[in-house]
Design a protein around this nucleic acid. Structure first.
Lengths: 334, 334
DNA sequence: CTGTTAGCGCTTTCAG
DNA sequence: CTGAAAGCGCTAACAG
């Protein structure tokens, strides 16, 4: 590979001059600049960023650390982040944790070895201490979601409690009183928060909670199907179901289909996330939209600002706006 | 950050010794090794891979270059590749081309600047010359699909012609004679190949081609819906539709629903890809499975083998097995 | 069994 | 306006 030295020889100047024309770091006469530029073209020169990194201790590499890139939610967030990274001349390396603590810790080591400049991550187990450790090494961190209690780091998230409260309130305003919750893992942070929002809405409108209509399982289609089947078999079935994500909601819809309860005539369904499938189901699913691409974008905006400002950057908590998307699976009653 | 020098001081040895205990590159007495190891632990040392790269000219970075990580097909392939990379102690940086030539070329430059050791890519426009250029710089390349005519590079793909032929033949064996094709972009390599397979199957079984049943548009749900609507409105509608991917097939199914043609009683539908949604639709979609995770894995296997063997590695063309998945959207007739 | 040292490709003072 | 040279953290001769 051709180096700065080769092009210095070719152009008959010193390597210092070459470096400066490349980076525009000091004035170089028009004539020399042009000779250098010509040499670079002739020799098809590409600066060695690895070498540059070593000298400047800025690798221009950032990491995107998530449970699983094959999860459509994260792949879309990733896309938003990558676009920001490309704009800022950073490359992004993607790591999957599978929500395993060991893997999460191991990735943080790799991140240090490669002298990565920043990370955006969605932690399942990693806690404040590990993150502080990372940031002590000069690595900027921004969190996806608010699993970690801190003001020290940038965070970008959606207000799960409020979003769920809004969704369920809307159902109530449409005349529903017999409301059930179909939840994923209630132990997960989003599961817990969405359940909280559901309960808040009932309380706000003075509707008593029916314990047997508070159902949970895992965040999957099958779980949604099974939970709904159980709910709809009751002597007193609910008239509306709030599902804690769209996967669950789709399962609920499928169960309703199979049991011949008509949606939305006999049952209203509301999901959460606004994945593309919700628009393709029949009836089309009402849901609360969570901005995925923007989440990644925003994470990037914060990270690259922090990288530019360093100490001057003060960590922020960005709450992205959710949005009710009313489609065909919900209807006015009473 | 602590360096090899710090730990040499702490342990009272030379930096050479430290380097050798880290890499196991020469014998070091048990006693010294232990002193070094202790120092490393105490100072929480992580080797600087950037510096190592500079010296060894092996960055241990590979690139994954695809149209869009948010496309579920590619995100799953990516996952397979990343898992192989992690096993081989490489990190992977992901680039999106959006199928734009300018972007594809630009990414190849970045790849050179970071002295990336290998790339796996799905080229839309990039041709042999650019690839040869890249590989001249010592970068191993493996291609996803066979858009580029060459024996010089590793390739992993599925036999689109044969897979389509198999699918359509199955339909014919089930008694179907009135067969239509709903295609995406017929100009794309997979669009063209899947159409070829469709035609081959008809020819093989001596079924004349009905020009008006050869439809195309783009690889989307909406296009599938519209194409099917047109087909089903004909005085002589087809009795079976082969869709060139599952997105199209789902659109076809939706159109059939809306027009009250019963699937599979009045219309059989066969898709291509086997995306998760095919299992969640009602009826469940028959389709031809394309192994996504394995595609990524295999690409990784080839790439890391090539990286290990260098010249000794001979480029291969790996054709992954497709598989007919018969579900509820197809039925025997006649 | 261990240490000294050159040098990977670049940036950046210092000197002119 | 330009060049010489030190040094980023590491590997790998070479020397003992």
């Amino acid at each position: 590979m051709t180096t700065i030295k080769d092009i210095a020889n070719q152009a008959g100047v010193s390597i210092a001059t070459v470096s400066h024309v490349i980076n525009g770091t000091r004035f170089v006469s028009k004539e020399t600049s042009e000779r250098v530029a010509a040499a670079m073209r002739q020799l098809d020169y590409q600066p060695n960023i690895i070498a540059k990194s070593l000298k400047t201790s800025r690798s221009h590499i950032v990491a995107f650390i998530i449970p699983d890139i094959a999860n459509p939610y994260f792949s879309e967030v990733c896309r938003g982040f990558q676009d920001m990274a490309a704009q800022n001349d950073f490359i992004v390396v993607v790591f999957n944790t599978d929500r395993e603590l060991a893997r999460e810790k191991q990735i943080l080591e790799v991140v240090r070895q490669y002298r990565v400049n920043g990370v955006v991550l969605n932690p399942a187990h990693i806690a404040l201490d590990d993150l502080l450790e990372v940031s002590k090494n000069g690595v900027e961190v921004v969190l996806l979601g608010n699993q970690v209690e801190t003001e020290r780091f940038d965070m970008v998230m959606v207000d799960n409690v409020k979003a769920s409260l809004d969704a369920v309130s809307r159902l109530i305003e449409m005349g529903h009183r017999r409301l059930a919750l179909v939840n994923g893992a209630p132990g997960s942070s989003s599961g817990a928060r969405r359940q909280q929002g559901f309960l808040d809405a009932l309380e706000l409108h003075g509707i008593p909670v029916q314990k047997e209509w508070l159902s949970s399982g895992s965040f999957t289609f099958e779980s949604g199907y099974q939970q709904a089947a159980r709910l709809l078999r009751m002597k007193e079935p609910p008239g509306a179901i709030f599902a804690a994500n769209d996967m669950l909601a789709l399962g609920v819809l499928s169960a309703a289909n199979d049991m011949e309860v008509r949606v939305p005539e006999q049952l209203s369904i509301m999901g959460f996330d606004n994945i593309p499938e919700t628009e393709r189901s029949r009836p089309r699913l009402s849901t609360v939209d969570q901005p995925k691409y923007e989440t990644g974008q925003e994470a990037g905006r914060l990270l690259f600002e922090a990288l530019r400002m360093r100490e001057a950057h003060v960590p922020q908590r960005v709450v992205l706006k959710h949005r009710l998307v009313m489609r065909e699976s919900t209807r006015q009653v009473g």
